[in-house]
């Protein structure tokens, strides 16, 4: 089992969702987050007070999958989120120790799908 965490541009969320549906991945958790990587954010000015390097809005996806779904999920995220521009985001893949469905108390691979 893996936990896939992806940071993407907010306006790519819809495209990523569509790609994930095509890859049969239907269970995702979405967060709105702030951040910046190598590129700096944009300037903001309030009554002449200038704020540089502010954080940009990003979307953070969490998807728990069984082994067979890892590559399809990664490919779907790339397909939906890639624009080729700076700031497209990152995908992190983590080992997932356990997964429990609260309703049925099922555990492991059964509980993920």
């Amino acid at each position: 089992m893996k936990l896939i965490i992806a940071i993407i541009k907010p306006d790519r969320l819809e495209a990523v969702k569509q790609e994930l549906y095509k890859a049969d991945v239907n269970l995702i958790t979405v967060n709105e987050v702030l951040g910046h990587g190598r590129q700096m954010g944009v300037a903001e000015v309030y009554r002449g007070v200038r704020e540089m390097g502010n954080l940009l809005r990003k979307i953070r996806l969490e998807i728990a999958v069984n082994e067979g779904f890892v590559e399809p999920t990664i490919n779907a995220i790339i397909k939906g989120a890639q624009t080729g521009n700076i700031g497209d985001g990152k995908i992190f893949v983590l080992d997932l120790v356990e997964c429990i469905r609260i309703r049925t108390e099922e555990r492991g691979g059964e509980a993920i799908g």
Partner: peptide
């Protein structure tokens, strides 16, 4: 296109209506 994605508030006026943090 880049400005439309980021929104008019930031790109046309250098301001944000709402803060997250």
């Amino acid at each position: 296109e880049k400005d439309e994605v980021m929104g008019l508030d930031l790109t046309q006026h250098h301001e944000n209506a709402y803060t997250i943090l």
